[in-house]
Amino acid sequence: MKILVCIKQVCDSSETLVHDTDPPWVRPSPATVFRMNRFDEFALEEALLIGERFPGTEIHALSVGPSRVCTTIRKALEMGASHGIHLCIEKELYLSGEDTASIIAGYARDKGYDLILTGIMSEDTMHCQVGQYLGALLVLPCITSVISEEISPDDARVVVEREIESGRRQAFLVKMPVVLTIQSGINRPRYPSLSNVLRARSQDLETCEAEHLGSPAFRQKIAAIRYPDAGKKGTFIQGDSRQKARELLSILHEKSLLSWR
């Protein structure tokens, strides 16, 4: 089996980002620390678990972004992916879900993947779209918010459950190739093993220029980036920690939520 896992590099904390106005977007600063999008750790782990069930499975980890994202692709190799792919964009620029998916689809179209896994959502742009667009662009079924999968490789059937509101679940029967967007909690992502860390160190990444892979439609643009309205915020309790504790206790007493000991 051949599995493609889409992984995004996100910043660990948006505090360190610098705001740009032309065009409006955020750019990393030297203080910015990056990591793998948490939902994608679950997608990658699921691919690795499938690989353990079906020996001979190839697991390709792919990321779209500037050269900084290579560290996250390498992390995927350390976790156990067999091949790393970097779809390179030159600058720090905003991509809509559709734009990102059209670059990935441009690469994946003729590669014969049986399964394409993404996270359910990226923590930075929070689109919840890329997997669904991949399905549309590659004309494959896409199931989102997947919380369990069961594959019968002989007839390419997959039974998946997706999690919906209040923890309810919907089950579907699909045939590979299929796109699945993975919800957190489906598994417990592993830590890299020493042997994989060593292997990853010497492994080359495949690099493609994104501009050669399909032309994003750019149907939307960011007009502004800003902080949310601070006016809606409640009372910040002031003082050192002891003063804050006292103040909080007296608020709880006043509201009869707590009785004096």
Binding site: S14, E123, D124, K221, I222, A223, A224, I225, Y227, P228
Partner: peptide, 16 residues
């Protein structure tokens, strides 16, 4: 208007 970065920032998006 939509939240990004876990609600720490907001983006204003203009469609074509």
């Amino acid at each position: 208007v939509r939240s990004i970065f876990g609600g720490k920032l907001q983006s204003v998006v203009t469609p074509q």
